[in-house]
Design a protein around this nucleic acid. Sequence first.
RNA 1: GCGCCCGUAGCUCAACUGGAUAGAGCAUCGGCCUUCUAAGCCGAGGGUCGCAGGUUCGACUCCUGCCGGGCGCGCCA
Length: 597
Amino acid sequence: MRQLSARETVREILAKVVGELAAEGLVGVVPIDSIAVERAKRPEHGDFASNVALVLAKPAGKPPRTVAEAIVARLPRGGSSPIAEASVAGPGFINVRLHPTFWQGMLSAILAAGDDWGRSPARNAPKILLEYVSVNPTGPMHFAHGRHAAVGDALARLLRFAGYPVTCEFYVNDAGNQVQMLAQSVWTRYMDAARAADPAVPAADFPENGYKGEYVRDFGRALFARDGARWVGVAPPADIEPVRSFAIAQALGMIRATLERFDVTFDLWQSERALHEAGDVAETLAALEAKGYIDRHDDAVWLRTTALWGDDKDRVVVKSDGLPTYLLADIAYHRKKLARGFDELCDIWGSDHHGHIARMQAALKAFGEDPARLRVILIQIVSLLRDGKPVAMGKREGEFVTLDDVVAEVGRDATRYFYLMRRHDTPLEFDLEVAKRQSLDNPVYYVQYGHARCAALVRRAAELEAPRPPMSTELAAELVLPEELAILRRLADFPDYVADAAAAREPQRLTTYVSELAGEFQSYYTRLQKVHDDTILPQERHRTGDWRAGWNWHKTAARLCWVEAIAQVMRNALGLLGVSAPESMPRSATITKEDDS
RNA sequence: GCGCCCGUAGCUCAACUGGAUAGAGCAUCGGCCUUCUAAGCCGAGGGUCGCAGGUUCGACUCCUGCCGGGCGCGCCA
């Protein structure tokens, strides 16, 4: 049976009492989900606060404090109840403090759950199709795409952990003008390579707005190396299917390799061309037409998005040249996703695509679906900085900072963590110098250091042959310092954070959580010595005479279990972010102690 | 012009979607090492939550209007 989180435990008790009062007609009936239970912001308010009395007061026609007092009077205390104290405060808040033994008991639950602490069991959650990155297969991934990859992958991990079935897809835009342009660009570079081998080969004009990056030359050379002069002089180049497929395969290969290095994987790479070839696009157009949402004028075919979903103008779905637009293919793709049985289509787009949302939702509405089934997460821009100053780029055309560049410079962990530090709708400042710094003012380093410190304590304990009795109630009762109980509460709250972050589709909340946890632990670590004049393990100065007999190993064992639980929760949180939790931190040679002079 | 997003400490920002005295980090200043990793910690200063109304027991949060910033408004994707 699943261990309820502390918050859910309180919520259930409150719901039971409210139910009793409702049965007696003193208050109205409310669903359990509408009872807000929050962690108290101030320790003197206890552990949790609920506004349930404020919510119930108005319909009941009673003063909030009266309702609150009625509830508090019935809250069970003592015996097996986890509630130690309950009181009414302010306008009618109910403050609840749980008994220390309840929190101490959570330690066993955390250690027993291990990697699964925070996981929600499989349940009747909506099936989600998460589509993200979906960058055009025309070149390497730009550093800003890294934010999409990091957010999407962390969201997928988070949702799965929280019990949602998730499928991740990358939509390959291999059917439009962009890949046509890439094919043309690659072909001219191929001609250059052919001419280098045989001066008789004519020069080919590089297309206006072609892709100018160095990688296009690589592709051209690679094509010549594979096929020789086979495509020389064949015109028009973009219609040579083997050239186009080669160019796309090369570009997609680069993207896949980058994502693999970034530890991001997809369940399916959906080709746009395949949708056309399978007839899904044509079928979608026919379906829209059958529903009466299609107009034909000015030689083009239009979708009546204004009538469907308040768009400001109707949109073209088939151009006057007879080719379908990107919009139509995307509608076909989303229609297919729904047909495959997904409840929610979650797309991650750049915020510059927000205008597209209304059109896609209009399309969903055309098929009689609730437009809310499409949930779009808009990612704001990333500014790359170095020591606080913008990184210069675009000096030469076709040159830009790639995701690979960033990962190569600052590492995968720092890259992912930095991309996940801000809400997705906030622009992100990514300072390369801060990210790669091996010091504690680098947030990711600070957090990883916290985990390494926990691991070091456990290692050191083994070296000292500290006895490690199994976790028990008596052992947990040794954890009595306010700092220890506060951290225990935070560990116990982890499942609630996970559930809330998943419900909000906001993986970055876990970076906040884990950095606060690390800070609280570091603070404790120093305070234990400075304020409490104590250490977890015996120190050199303790080890004199018959020190083994005199040391309180019971307390040490309890604290070691607690430290292991902290490390465990850090690992779980970092794992959801796709960031590693090192056992030790490399000692940096560049950090030296200042002298006194 | 219309639409979407955003205005919170010097800077960068922040879970509990309307709750109690608005919190961090960085930066600044002042403390703490014969060290379980000082690779750390503690403390101080710093705010009319863009402005003005409204909704209500209660608003940084919701509504309206303004001001400022970003993005979008293709038969591109």
